[in-house]
Amino acid sequence: MKVSFFPGCSLEGTAREYGESIEAVCNAIDIELQELSGWNCCGASSAHATNEFLSIALPARNLSIAEKAERDLVTPCAACYSRFKTAEKALTGESPVDVEIPFKGEINILHMLEFLCREEFAEAIGRNITTPLHKVKAVSYYGCLLVRPPGVTHAEHCEDPGGLDTLIAKLGGESVFWPYKTECCGGSLVLTRVDIIHRLNSRLLDMAREAGADCIVTACPLCQANLDTRQEEIGAGKGIKYNLPIFYFTELMGLAFGNQGVDKWFGRHFVDPRPLLEAKQLL
């Protein structure tokens, strides 16, 4: 199976292990990711907060390239996904916006999580599991833009989504219930209001701990970066050592698949997940 792949800007930088684990997992289940040729940044919050035309036209250029390639478009970033789905709605809705870029809406736009959770890959995923993640107690963190607003994402259960929970269970882990599945990590305020980022992520970390989880699983580079890189300083401010590894869901898939690259991916984390996994005899 071959799809167009839109990595997004952070996959070459802060979210490198996400990109590496995606590649490994897709290889294992025979998915060929064809990087979208000449892709550009989706514009993220900075476009939609300042210029409506820009917020539609920047993602539209990528959608147009993907449509010409006649393959579905998959992206691992929740923010890119949200901008693509918003642009799709604006360009193909009842009163379409004209940004002088052709796009008819003939391809599907998917987030990597919803793509890999498709029924057609269930068998291949099951077949690849060599190291079931027994004893891993994880909370699923979907964040905002993977599911909201439902008018754009068409998420079935936007207040209590389940795809990631099902996947964790399938990998042999325990998906722990917590009420903050879709709470906000502050994303776009990362440089401008660090105090707000601290407060929001502190709530998430506290809740994950209270729920009895020993790690958090994400599907977005911004969520992962906020929870991982800021964790030590948030804890220091409160006299707590959280020590909660923050995984990309594809890293856990790679781990369950017995992939050799896991050590390299986990070495990129600020909160090193290896001691936890060693204690659970998964490494």
Partner: peptide, 22 residues
């Protein structure tokens, strides 16, 4: 600071087509 951030972000896209975090 927020609109200054947005401008820096968009300037980066304008320059190279993608955001260079650094």
């Amino acid at each position: 600071r927020v609109p200054v951030f947005h401008q820096a972000f968009l300037d980066s896209i304008k320059k190279t087509g993608r955001v260079h975090e650094l």
